[in-house]
Design a protein around this nucleic acid. Structure first.
Lengths: 166, 166
DNA sequence: TTTTAATCAGATTTGTTTAATCAAGATTGA
DNA sequence: TCAATCTTGATTAAACAAATCTGATTAAAA
């Protein structure tokens, strides 16, 4: 039920691109400095974002990446949908996945679909611009500090497998 | 972002217990027949459910499992929270997890928290009774057929890693 | 009292996925 | 040219999920 690090990083990278959108393309090395994610991992994450038309890039010296459309038109829903391959709490929440034998009879499926839809709606309602405005007092102001992304990805899941203290 | 099979199975198992709640405890073998999940895996899943007070069990011959409280008082939120160790889209969505260095400065965290809360609210609003009523025409009627749980857990994730068609 | 049907506990296995790195190319401005 | 930059695909190590295996313990029924 957790988002992957790739998705979280994607959001942060796009947000950084939004922030510096009026000062030309941002090189992956800059993005790396801002977020704390390795250059190579950033490049890997940018690939699907570019393919999906969220970003553009210019090659060669003084090249880099930039948003392909205004920050008001990019939603978290778009980002999550892209990086996670859809917004679905279960495989069967996706309409296209009619692979399960008892798909149409499943007594729990409707609930998972409903919650997934709600989640998707809310994510679609949050734009990069919203995040910028909520957080940075003055958007695109270079004086605002950068903060590394959260690198803690594993452990500490409060797992139900382990028996609680004896 | 997907629920684990353990969580999905837990919901189905509890639903089955709810359905047969007026005919004494249900043995794991019966639950297995109804859902298609192996007896041993079912026992593994029932363990935390019992510890959390959602079910009770009687040992020995003609023993089995039953709900510890009425189906109107057990919500999907409870089940998911228990099996997944919380309802959080990210590690940092949990209030207790102040482990990330830039926890309070993260420009995306607030969004993940908000969506997680919405999801939790909706899951908390759905009871086992709701699922029973929505699905089975006559609750606790043995004439209704059983359907196996969805066993498809991997693949088909529409992964963004793979380049879309050339 | 013995048998038998159950739960209980937990270790082990298998394969997948994730997160990340590595390495070699392809472009392009200076 | 050359150095900064994106592009692409392969590879790795660890974590995790799903499930099975083993061996108890418990208690009703025969």
């Amino acid at each position: 039920m957790k988002l992957s690090a790739r998705t979280r990083y994607a959001a942060r990278i796009l947000l950084d691109l939004a922030r510096y959108s009026n000062s030309g393309p941002l090189a992956a090395t800059r993005l790396s400095q801002h977020t704390g994610v390795s250059v190579q991992f950033i490049e890997q994450i940018l690939k699907p974002l570019k393919q999906a038309g969220l970003t553009t890039s210019t090659r060669g010296a003084s090249g880099g990446h930039s948003l392909a459309k205004p920050a008001t038109l990019i939603t978290l829903g778009e980002v999550v949908r892209l990086m996670e391959g859809g917004i679905h709490l279960t495989l069967c929440s996706s309409e296209e996945t009619a692979t399960c034998a008892s798909w149409e009879f499943c007594p729990t499926r409707a609930a998972w679909v409903k919650v997934s839809k709600t989640m998707e709606q809310e994510l679609d309602s949050i734009t990069l611009k919203d995040l910028l405005d909520d957080y940075y007092a003055v958007p695109s102001d270079d004086n605002q500090p950068d903060f590394p992304v959260c690198r803690i990805t594993r452990t500490g899941r409060g797992n139900a497998k382990k028996s609680a203290r004896k």
